[in-house]
Design a protein around this nucleic acid. Structure first.
Lengths: 165, 165
DNA sequence: TATTGTTATACTCTATAACTATA
DNA sequence: TATAGTTATAGAGTATAACAATA
């Protein structure tokens, strides 16, 4: 127990100079912004997804590239980058990593010799089948978290917000 | 017009070795994930918010700190960091920036001399009033983008997703 | 002259470790 | 012994500029 060194009764410090009680912070000003709620949800979902997929050592960006390459075999890095909204120098590094792991190959395009056509390798296809199963389980977890609300409603609203203005 | 150097009729390259047509990429595998839709919405909203607030030269993180400091005068950096989900070393730099701009002050806490109690300055309060008006306009734009759907439904779903598991 | 892929660079953000001054 | 703030550092991610090969 703290002892007051003076004989005067201990007073609460002036509100102006003490820290706020850390367990009861007023976040109402912030919490009503859609942008803030989206950001917090995105951080939570990505963090949980990372843990959920940890055994495969694949980031969300890498997973996205693998999916797009499977569904669009032979597409080039510029298209990949544009579709995912990352810069091409970043995409070079992502594809470098996937190629070093033997999951994709870069072939010379027969159409445009500047371009590199990206394909899944056999190990890439095998890994992606595992990623598909595991990520589908995660998606079911997410939908459970929406209890009472409809995933399609959420997706529609998010797509509206993501549309270019 | 390209000229085929051989006399044979030009054939389309085999599907396996050409790039996908860049304007018709199949994103259905990715587009059905809630996590992907959240990420795209977050990037779009933050990018637009940044443009919208450009004249004030304040990032979303700095704006969040200013709001929390206004609503919780005297709170310390650890509480700020914990509330916003950033690490304390990052919060040091954010508060450094705001202090250098003269928007907040760090006072010695009268309760715990290790802690720094953060307050808005008069210029900080003045700027925040402008930020309030401008960000409220932006929030109305966001709600308009949801046409037909309810902001409160979206907020409820996002908060469910942001809850710790 | 424009474009794809690439390298290089700078800046931001995330994540730790370690140090200081206090508790 | 533990905690708040700080410094330092390493790793992602973002954003540009510039260059080679090719269109």
């Amino acid at each position: 127990m703290p002892v007051n060194p003076s004989s005067r009764p201990r007073r609460k410090p002036p509100a102006q100079t003490g820290p706020a009680a850390s367990e009861q912070v007023d976040t109402s000003g912030l919490g009503d912004f859609v942008g803030y709620a989206i950001r917090r949800a995105q951080l939570a979902v990505f963090q949980e997804f990372k843990t959920w997929m940890a055994e495969f050592e694949v980031t969300t960006a890498q997973f996205s590239v693998l999916l797009l390459v499977r569904d669009n075999p032979g597409l080039n890095q510029k298209t990949l980058a544009g579709t995912l909204g990352v810069e091409t120098p970043r995409m070079v590094l992502i594809v470098d990593y996937l190629e070093n792991r033997g999951l994709v190959t870069r072939l010379a395009s027969t159409v445009d010799r500047r371009a590199r056509a990206i394909f899944l390798t056999a190990p890439g296809r095998k890994l992606l089948r595992q990623l598909d199963r595991r990520s589908a389980e995660y998606e079911r977890r997410i939908v459970e978290r929406l209890r009472g609300d409809d995933k399609e409603t959420l997706m529609r609203m998010l797509r509206h917000l993501a549309e270019p203005v």
